[in-house]
Amino acid sequence: MGEPAIQITDLKKQYQGTIALSSVSFDIKPGEMFGLIGPDGAGKTSLIRILTSLLDPDDGQCRLLGISVNNEPEQVRKVIGYMPQRFSLYPDLTVGENLRFFADLFRVPRQERLKRTEALLQFSRLTPFVKRRAGQLSGGMKQKLALSCALIHTPKVLILDEPTTGVDPVSRREFWGILKTLKEGGVTLLVATPYMDEAEKCDRIALINKGNILAVGTAAEIIERFTGVVYALFGLNLPAIAGWFKKRLHPNQVQILGDRVHVSLFADTTETMDSLCREAENSGHSIRSVEAAEPGLEDTFISLIVEKN
């Protein structure tokens, strides 16, 4: 086991009275793929900026591979790869030139560069566009090129801030395949993401809200914290049924998922699904059947955050 790859102890940060992080602590193990989830403004980016030595904490410590970020920021920058939420490419360089530029910057050996470039172009589907200037790519293509530039070298620790915003589902799946390969090669990964299906791919997850860590654990462990009940409703007009429940309960508690509507009742409610369904039927909705469903990470995310508010 040994020392954690990333060690965060009592980290605090305020901006003009707004608390961005109020005493955050957790560890990430070497070779772990660690997910960071939380609502917008929860403190994810502040935490990442502190870890990457771009922002000074008010108080607390963090160490990456045993190196203190507070005392040796230059050393830290040498071992990490980092992709900020908004990453700037060179719009006048082509796709190929951008990749080459970052490979040279990180002193990637030629053989390695060629191999890596091929894999990255495969995931990003940018092969037909290597000669196109980056400024002329679509939003998602730019994001994928930025990701590719960040992944052209192999850092020991890779920190990604919402890497797949704007990336389509096909590329998203392949991108996570690349992350998995890196993990298997021993890279430690910290990924902030608003996608729950991505968080579920991580070994462990921290849920952060208003600068506090609400839960840390595997997806299954976090889901166990959900204390309510989730119901799956089947029926004729799902959008109408979902609409009714959103009005009657709260938009947070209702989601259409494929051929069913999920409605979650939090632990503190006095409502029962039986009577709610009767009410819905009386308002003209036709619900064919109701069954208890497994709560997911998103249900838990929402209930933990709503509970704290």
Partner: peptide, 20 residues
């Protein structure tokens, strides 16, 4: 054009509620 890109799951539900 991608109104909910980078928006958290709770806020996304509000967005879609407003859109509906």
């Amino acid at each position: 054009d991608e109104p909910t890109g980078g928006v958290d799951p709770i806020a996304r539900r509000y967005f879609w509620d407003l859109i509906s």
